[in-house]
Design a protein around this nucleic acid. Structure first.
Lengths: 207, 207
DNA sequence: TAGATTGTTAATCGATTAACAATC
DNA sequence: TAGATTGTTAATCGATTAACAATC
């Protein structure tokens, strides 16, 4: 197994790929580090260093070959086979997230939702099956779901997390306002929109 | 104006306050740095250092007085008066975000939504008025809106941002997959959920 | 060749953590 | 007082940026 790349580099590789896949550079065969940097508001050194860490090389004067760079990023960050994900907590927020993520990436497919509300459970969302949370362990195993996006109410977050881990999940994206405690074998990513807004309130107050 | 605190400290202060306001410590008058740290999966040094940077003191042996700590955080991070926010792009995702944020914080109120779809514009959302994006400049000024949450399609993000800045907005939370270019006078916070998922895919593949 | 660009090491910057004196 | 905790400086760690040789 190759050495792990820094989290920040992985984030940027994801963003480089998205820009390269979008039609912005459709026409061009090559792209310079400063062009890519400009599109994402980074510096060209940072771009070159990230690509270097990935073990990818460009050509002085020509820059980086767009399609081969995309392939290199695919090989680096994509999982070897399609990974399935579920949204746990299909309220307004969870449902919107599930819809939003559907078919966004080829290698990560949101295919299931869980909730305690029977109203929600038989709701038809194209491509996303909804289940009662009681079935979570069984369904996760049957559908081979490896990540979950957690959008349950904050009070239930820690309990739900325990169930997910017991069911063999590998990673959690926690969009709940509660901070989760997970073993080192689980990859946890947390984002809290309220904290973002409070940051904006603080920094706009002062600048 | 007091010296700006680091972004990471502000993020944690926001989280400390949320925990303290939740009923977890309802009963206790004092809390130790290691208790607060444990609840958020941080170290006690980090908690003490953050509070020190804020200029707040506890008492050896007793720890920190819960209600006065909350007040200190309020005074540090809350704006002097209520700030109004708008969600720009009221699709499924934007609408869910607007609902999700409604009444979450006393000093930040999401009161308006903007979209190009006439279907959406007259939609009734309790407490949130929807407007056509053509009216954005006028409405932002009239309602004294100071931040926006951007949830438009990625292609429209940069154009929309220009309008927001022209209308005098101070901060933007960009939930769009496009990276924005803003002048230094605007506080910009960006979060991209797809990138989070791709990070999870990478790190669960390797660990 | 001259000039722009890549690749990479070393320096810098910022944030976290270790160490420990001061305090109740 | 003894012991646990706070407050704070100094050391460490990690990520970004500067500098510059190598390359086309």
């Amino acid at each position: 197994m190759s050495k792990l790349l820094p989290e920040k580099t992985i984030e940027r590789l994801s963003r480089y790929r998205r820009i390269l896949l979008s039609n912005v550079y459709n026409e061009k065969e090559f792209i310079y580090s400063h062009e890519l940097a400009h599109l994402l508001h980074l510096t060209s050194v940072q771009v070159r260093r990230d690509l270097m860490l990935m073990g990818y090389s460009g050509t002085p004067t020509k820059g980086y070959h767009v399609t081969s760079l995309i392939t290199a990023i695919n090989d680096t960050i994509d999982p070897p086979e399609v990974q399935y994900a579920a949204v746990v907590g299909m309220g307004n927020f969870g449902t919107a997230i599930a819809r939003h993520l559907k078919n966004k990436r080829d290698f990560i497919r949101v295919i299931a939702g869980f909730d305690i509300d029977n109203e929600v459970i038989n709701r038809i969302l194209p491509g996303i099956k909804c289940f009662h949370i009681n079935e979570i362990e069984k369904v996760i195993k049957e559908l081979n779901i490896s990540f979950c996006i957690l959008t349950v109410p904050p009070e239930s977050a820690n309990l739900t997390k325990d169930v997910l881990i017991k069911a063999g999940i590998l990673g959690i994206l926690n969009l709940t306002a509660t901070s989760l405690d997970v073993p080192a074998s689980i990859f946890l990513e947390e984002y809290d929109i309220i904290t973002s807004l409070e940051k904006i309130a603080y920094f706009t107050k002062h600048l």
